[in-house]
Design a protein around this nucleic acid. Structure first.
Length: 571
RNA sequence: CGGGGUGUAGCGCAGCCUGGUAGCGCAACUGCUUUGGGAGCAGUGGGUCGGGGGUUCGAAUCCCUCCACCCCGACCA
């Protein structure tokens, strides 16, 4: 491709409403253009990248023996009413009417359609297991679309669905899919982690999310230094401290702390180590507990995990923090002066807190704290539970290694659905035993368009995008210097261009009559991984200038055999 | 859905408070010069000032209303 024939639409200025790097760079490089909130056009340049990702996904799915198909984007409401999701899916479901006033949805996902197909087509266990997939535009009416195609309303997704005679078969395909997904992200050249996700209300089902690691990720994940363990921070267990609680060394001391209303104040004003402080949070109690409010205690530098807290039988669901007035009424003190000693309401302490000694906490009197608090001696140790978010350095819940934290962008999700849809839609086959069996199902999604944005988040610098080779729109950019004046340069560029194309390389020749700086900046912004500069100077010496996008220094390759030399570098 | 903000040339913005015939930078187009890191000079084109209504001799500017977009939150997991 030549730039003169390929619509390059780079911009120097950053659009005002783009916040994160990938969004800015996709707009500046001209990969996408916004049509309306959360809905984007993909330019010829962007489309090349999207197709690359799509093709990697397709090849790996095909290789695993999964069957590609295409389902309708527009689906009748009846199917969604059958599974109850017409109501349950919520506002993200885009409902549309046809001219006769019949109700439809624009598919945000396709469990209903595929299950309908399966119940009509699948009759015998001999046809199982089978996995169908499609790569298709989905629409979810996000409450707040943002970050460009990262969280768009319309997006490209690969969704797959598997059908089985029993749970064991489902489990087998599930783990197979886990490997397929891992290969896909590896092939795309991305750093990723498979993260165990919440099995949640559905219970017992396996579920993993695949996250591309990037600082701007919306999810915080914890993973072990030494094992495969990885989990969303909100779901990772904070392991109870090993070893016995250190013995008390200090006496209980009531201290005037008129200006200390937060843990920070306490640490700054009294020079206490934050690990020796405890904070007390008051939430509404479950009705049957009859106490009105419950205190939750975590170490000063720890963060209460609302998921974990909400699961406590003592705590009302949904979880609600007490107001300042309620706290006063329940404890006799303000929120900045609460603690376990002399507390009038029931409390639950984090397991880390339970193992602390000689710590500081509010005295339940305004403007006073106790220092040197010890369990048992100064107050009864309340019930213990895992209440906090894990932090970096915590032991891994699986006992191997310690936890590290990283931000991730969810680009894939695999799930053992079980019979949720097959049961409500009566998708059954005859088994070997001659009886009807409801088919357990799995579903497996990959956000194809999101991967493009995630890849940029993970691979960019101050000049622009740094595509991993496998998903770059072009592999090589040829920049002729002053081609207008130099027929030698022009000819050398055309020759190399033709030779690389003949060798099957995707190459972009910048034949625009623009200054070199423009070419350099555009090609770096667009992120083409390999750059060849052709100039009179080099031709005199029989060399071409070569530079990898992520390198900081220029290299040279001999004009003689340049194609072969380049092919080697493309890997 | 609640709160906040913004809509003026393709992009980024000023003008609005204090009403008087719409401007700057970048981009685009033409010509000449220039060509190893976003060129210089000269010239040109481009605007329903988000839409509708009102006040006024006169509205980008003031008032009402609708719409769109952005940010924070809630929701969702």
């Amino acid at each position: 491709m030549k730039t003169s024939k390929f619509h390059i639409m780079t911009t120097r200025e950053t659009p005002a409403d783009a916040e994160i790097a990938s969004h800015q760079l996709m707009l500046r490089s001209g990969m996408i253009r916004k049509l309306t909130a959360g809905i984007y056009s993909w330019s010829p340049l962007g489309w090349r990248v999207l197709k690359k990702v799509e093709q990697i996904v397709r090849e790996e799915m095909d290789r695993a023996g999964y069957l590609e198909m295409l389902m309708p984007a527009v689906q009748p409401a009846e199917l969604w009413k059958e599974t109850g999701r017409w109501e349950d899916f919520g506002g993200q479901l885009l409902k549309i009417l046809d001219r006769a006033g019949r109700e439809y949805v624009f598919g945000p996902t396709h469990e209903e359609v595929i299950t309908d197909l399966a119940r009509n087509e699948l009759r015998s266990y001999k046809q199982l297991p089978v996995t169908f997939y499609q790569i298709q535009t989905k629409f979810r009416d996000e409450i707040r679309p943002r970050f460009g195609v990262m969280r768009a309303r319309e997006f490209l997704m690969k969704d797959a669905y598997s059908f089985h005679i029993d749970e064991a078969s489902l489990d087998q395909t599930y783990w197979e899919m886990y490997e397929v997904y891992s290969r896909i992200f590896e092939r795309a050249g991305l750093m990723f982690r498979a993260v165990r996700a919440d099995s949640g209300a559905i219970g017992g089902s396996q579920s993993h999310e695949f996250h591309v690691l990037a600082e701007s990720g919306e999810d915080l994940i914890a993973f072990s230094t030494d094992s495969e363990f990885a989990a969303n921070v909100e779901l990772a267990e904070a392991v109870a401290p090993a070893g016995a609680t250190p013995p008390a060394k200090e006496d209980l001391l009531l201290v005037d702390t008129p200006d200390a209303h937060t843990i920070n104040d306490l640490v700054e004003q009294f020079g206490l180590p934050v690990e020796k402080t405890v904070k007390t949070l008051i939430v509404e109690a479950a009705e049957e507990s009859g106490s009105g409010f419950v205190a939750l205690l975590v170490r000063g530098d720890h963060v209460l995990n609302e998921f974990k807290a909400a699961r406590l039988p003592q705590v009302a669901t949904p979880i609600r923090f007490a107001t300042e007035d309620e706290i006063h009424a329940a404890t006799g003190a303000g929120p900045g002066s609460l603690g376990p000693v002399g507390l009038k309401i029931p409390a639950v302490v984090d397991r880390t807190v339970a193992a602390m000694s000689d710590f500081a906490a509010g005295a339940n009197q305004d403007g006073k704290h106790y220092f040197g608090v010890n369990w048992g001696r100064d107050t009864e140790l309340p019930e213990q539970a895992d209440l906090r978010n894990v932090t970096e350095g915590d032991p891994s819940p699986d006992g191997e290694g310690t936890l590290q934290l990283a931000r991730g962008i969810e680009v894939g999700h695999i799930f053992q659905l079980g019979t949720k849809y097959s049961e409500s839609m009566n998708a059954v086959v005859l088994g070997e035993d001659g009886k009807s069996h409801v088919m357990p199902m799995g579903c497996y999604g990959i956000g194809v368009s999101r991967i493009v944005a995630a890849a940029i988040e993970q691979n960019h610098d101050e000049k622009g995008i740094c595509w991993p080779d496998p998903i770059a729109p072009f592999q090589v950019a040829i920049l002729p210097m002053n081609a207008r004046k130099s027929h030698r340069v022009r000819e050398a560029a055309e020759l190399l261009y033709a030779d690389l194309q003949a060798a099957g390389v995707e190459v972009l020749l910048d034949d625009r009559n623009v200054r070199p700086g423009v070419m350099f900046n555009d090609m770096e912004l667009i992120g083409i991984p390999h750059r060849v500069v052709i100039g009179e100077r080099g031709l005199d010496e029989g060399v071409l200038e070569y530079r990898k996008r992520t390198d900081t220094e220029n290299g040279e390759i001999p004009l003689e055999g340049a194609v072969e030399a380049l092919l080697e570098r493309l890997g």
